[in-house]
Design a protein around this nucleic acid. Structure first.
Length: 896
RNA sequence: GGGCGGUUAGCUCAGUUGGUUAGAGCAUCUCGUUUACACCGAGAGGGUCGGGGGUUCGAGUCCCUCACCGCCUACCA
């Protein structure tokens, strides 16, 4: 492979679109993200939270995948066998909805087709549109191993699903039961509890009169869903409620329908709520169902699959449930059977796919018994084998797991994994089978049938961390890459997915599926609203990529996302990332323009052979800090801190200070020094872009080649991750802490000088003459040796370092850590203004002294605070006193 | 009803174990087109950290309490 080895001239403007497309294609061609099992390397694995095949990329995906890519790219550069497995899930209900809508446009329903024909349609749709999001992930720069792309309906993953079903079935952890489940009348399927989204809704509490048989008395029940009264089989009161004790055992006449129903006593009833009487509708309410079981009532279902009233609803048969509610209440009113109607706020379940109000409904469904599975999964988090970041999610997880309820896994749709349960009607045998059987294993009859339902999509997703590696086969991939390391996800799917993966991992692999779960925040608009199609406030990541580049999108997101906090974005916020990329680009161009010879191999620079200037030393030390901060922040999943550390280093230390310093060298004629500075720059720059590569992969790869660093390694992706050098390491190059600190103080001095310039409105062209009175002899020496740098950074005409300098007349000045800076200006000096300014400073300093003095004279502080803190305060006090003296001297001079 | 998160500069947010003068980006103001960059440079102004109470020598940082915003969770009909 030949990536091209020579430094090519960078164009003046960075054009990301072409560059990003070019490199992604190259990476794909080279299979740069492909991992191979290798016992000699430490594996590091991420499995993607599989997006829906129906999905299109939104900001949440952009954030989620950028995080994963940052992690995996860093690990890859660190020499680990890094693998990021991509894929999509089949999104049963959502996908079926999409295809059904398509059929509807042709005037057809899925029932006009056979089940097989319909599934063919779905597969065809999937082939045509299902890869949209995959392409979009590539645009983002995601370094997934595309050779390992998986789909939950793939043959292998389907096999895993059947295997798991059969194992749980045989262990009696999967059972079929007639229970109240969440039913979506639009999707005509059962939903799990998690798929029913509770929305605070203003409804009403209807108080309805039921007549007592053979008496004039009426009792009043309250309900939020009056239409369900058509299915009432009883009225319950609390056994402790004296008001109604004589009614228990009597018979009521159900209004409209005229059915006779008993009054029963049941502990469930809270005598203090409503009227203390509860209508019992076992087919339409979970509590009523329980009451029904206790009292052996037969439930009466009054609705069909679509939420339309059935013949049991008598005169309301054929009406939609809400239409029925309206009509029924009207009729009751006419009959004088409504006592009152109160407004009532309550949480109403809505279908997470189509927002239709969920109907609690009695229906035979398949369930997974969760408690036995939850137990080890609780332990794994409790004992720290699995770590949640941020930690606060532990509690949410544990709460849910400890009160876990059985999982309704059957769905009355066609797209998905069909439940592998078979029935023999001849002998009544029922069994689960890994293979499609031909006859009944008990009576041998050929005429057997398979269960019609399919499984919840999450029933395949919960196996994802091992099913993607070929489980239940014992594959080399499984051996090398399971357990995986980090899962990055939004907290919304903690219950849906994360918790269930932990249970599945422990149950089927006997090992945790990952050791870290990083929960990132939700991406919101700049008003804090969730982005949604209906609000029209979504920002399309692809538009941002087009406008600013994928790197800009990625870097901005990382910079803006504090650990686990929601991130608010608007279009302009992405300028941050774009500007940063431009800055880096221009820094590179600057180096090219000042190149003195052949490209430099950054990995072969030998600083031991050079006498590094203070600015060189400072930059190299700061690089070490930047690397350490970045690594440390990434380790702790503090992506914004990592991004900031790099931003600050690149922009401020590298560009603002070092590049400016280097100009004083490049403008001179010391050829050797020029080459040395160039080597420092390339060493540092090449390290910095490696550090940045996980965040902004495209521009860093482009620059790696543009700067000719491919002498060192073909691609930045395979370049070694930079080492964070400590002062012990740096001392081998002659770098001393004292010198680095001197440069820090020098920057302070330069700032003081520049402030003087601005205060007196000097343009950069006006080269003022500066005088510096160093605070110490030693500093004077350092400044003299470093005069070219100081002079250049200050834009000075002449500069004199003089331990005894005293201005002859009024001369503006400022005090820095290294000494007093004087600036001579010819022409107008507003002495009075200058004195006033100095006096204001004295005041500030005196406030400081007073504060510290007070602190230091506090017996408690001196005796109880740690010694170094006290010493620090004393040192600071001395400094302030010294500063005050200097200021006062200056005032005297000016007043003279 | 429970739980969690948030309330710090005009805006959006950082602030790790309590300890020098509370930070950043954007915005604002002043100056600036010396060949890296106006998607830029130099400089400046701006907050006492939601209210109240407490612990401490010392609190944005710990405790209590109140208020408001947001999220999650819950079978009170």
């Amino acid at each position: 492979m030949n990536w091209g080895f020579f430094m090519s001239e960078l164009p003046k403007n960075y054009e990301p679109a072409g560059v990003e497309a070019k490199w992604y294609a190259k990476w794909m061609e080279e299979k740069a993200f492909h991992a191979v099992p290798d016992e000699t390397k430490e594996p590091w694995t991420i499995v993607i939270p599989p997006p829906n095949v129906t999905g299109i990329l939104h900001m949440g995906h952009a954030l989620n995948n950028t995080i994963q890519d940052v992690l995996i790219r860093q690990k890859r550069m660190q020499g680990k066998n890094a693998l990021w497995v991509p894929g999509t899930d089949h999104a049963g209900i959502a996908t079926q909805n999409v295809v059904e809508r398509k059929l509807a446009k042709e005037g057809k329903s899925r029932h006009d087709l056979s089940r097989d024909e319909f599934l063919k349609e779905v597969w065809a749709w999937k082939e045509e549109y299902g890869n949209t999001i995959v392409g979009q992930l590539k645009k983002l720069g995601s370094s997934c191993d595309w050779d390992r792309e998986r789909f939950t309906m793939d043959e292998g993953l389907s096999k895993a699903v059947v295997e798991v079903f059969c194992r749980l079935y045989d262990k009696k952890l999967i059972y079929r039961g007639n229970r109240i489940i969440n039913w979506c009348p639009r999707c005509t399927t059962a939903l799990s509890d998690e798929e029913s989204e509770h929305v605070e809704t203003e409804g009403a509490l209807y108080y309805i009169r039921y007549a007592v048989k053979d008496e004039k008395r009426k009792i009043v029940v309250a309900t939020t869903r009056p239409e369900t009264m058509l299915g009432d089989v009883a009225v319950a009161v609390s056994p402790r409620d004296k008001r109604y004790s004589d009614l228990v055992g009597k018979t009521l006449i159900l209004p409209i329908i005229g059915r006779e129903i008993p009054v029963v006593a049941d502990e469930f009833v809270d005598p203090n709520f409503g009227t203390g009487c509860v209508k019992v509708t076992p087919a339409h309410d979970p509590n009523d169902f329980e009451i029904g079981l206790r009292h052996k009532f037969s439930p009466i279902n009054v609705m069909d699959d679509h939420g339309v009233m059935n013949e049991a609803a008598g005169p309301y048969a054929g009406m939609d449930r809400f239409e029925c509610r309206k009509k029924l209440v009207e009729d009751l009113k006419h009959g004088g059977l409504i006592e009152k109607i109160d407004k009532h706020m309550h949480a109403v379940g809505h279908c997470y796919r189509c927002s239709t109000v969920v109907e609690p409904r009695l229906s035979p469904q398949w369930f997974v018994k969760m408690q036995p599975l939850a137990k080890p999964a609780i332990e794994a988090v409790r004992d720290g084998r699995i770590k949640f970041v941020p930690e606060r999610w532990n509690k949410v997880y544990l709460d849910w797991m400890e009160n876990i309820r059985d999982w309704c896994i059957s769905r009355q749709i066609w797209w998905g994994h069909r439940i592998p349960v078979f029935y023999c009607d001849a002998c009544g045998y029922e069994w689960a089978s890994r293979e499609v059987p031909h006859d009944c294993p008990v009576c041998g009859v050929r005429d057997i049938r398979q269960d019609e339902d399919v499984l919840d999509t999450w029933f395949s997703s919960w196996l994802w961390p091992f099913s993607v590696f070929g489980w239940p086969e014992k594959t080399a991939d499984l051996k090398q890459f399971y357990p995986t390391n980090t899962i990055a996800t939004a907290p919304e799917i903690l219950f849906f997915w994360v918790a269930r993966m932990i249970m599945a991992g422990l149950e089927f692999m006997d090992e945790i599926p990952f050791d870290t779960v990083y929960f990132h925040g939700t991406v919101r608009d700049d008003q804090g609203r969730k982005m949604s199609k209906s609000l029209g406030n979504s920002i399309d990541p692809l538009n941002i990529i087009e406008k600013y580049s994928a790197d800009a999108l990625r870097f901005s997101l990382m910079m803006l996302t504090a650990t686990g906090q929601d991130v608010y974005v608007n279009d302009e916020k992405f300028e941050l990332g774009r500007n940063f990329c431009t800055k880096i680009w221009n820094a590179a161009r600057f180096m090219q323009m000042n190149a003195t010879g052949a490209p430099i191999d950054p990995d072969k620079v030998d600083f031991r052979a050079m006498k590094l200037s203070p600015d060189d030393q400072h930059l190299l030390a700061k690089l070490g800090e930047a690397i350490r901060n970045t690594e440390d922040s990434l380790e702790r999943h503090r992506f914004n801190d990592a991004a900031l550390a790099m931003y600050d280093f690149m922009w401020h230390h590298y560009c603002d200070w070092y590049v400016e310093y280097s100009k004083s060298v490049f403008r001179g004629d010391d050829a050797q020094r020029k080459r040395e500075v160039e080597q420092v720059m390339h060493y540092v720059f090449s390290s910095a872009i490696r550090l940045l590569h996980p965040f902004i992969p495209f521009i860093t790869e482009e620059l790696w080649h543009g700067m000719g660093y491919n002498i060192a390694s073909e691609s930045i992706q395979t370049a070694p991750w930079p080492k964070a050098l400590s002062y012990d390491d740096l001392s081998a190059w002659g770098i001393q802490r004292g010198t680095v600190e001197y440069v820090e103080a020098k920057h302070d001095l330069i700032r003081v000088g520049r402030t003087l310039r601005t205060d007196y409105n000097l343009t950069p062209k006006q080269q003022a003459n500066f005088y510096i009175r160093p605070a110490q002899e030693r500093i004077g020496k350092l400044l003299c040796d470093d005069i070219a740098s100081v002079s250049s950074l200050l834009g000075a005409g002449t500069i004199q370092i003089d331990r005894d300098f005293t201005p002859e007349g009024a001369m503006p000045s400022g005090i820095s850590q290294l000494g007093t800076v004087y600036m001579s200006i010819e022409g107008l000096v507003d002495t009075a203004a200058e004195i006033a300014k100095l006096k204001k400073q004295v005041e500030l300093v005196e406030n400081g002294i007073t504060g510290i003095t007070k602190k230091l004279s506090n017996e408690n502080f001196v005796s109880r605070a740690p010694a170094d803190v006290v010493a620090g305060e004393e040192k600071r006090k001395a400094e302030l006193i010294e500063k005050r003296e200097k200021l006062q001297k200056l005032i005297e001079t000016l007043s003279a």
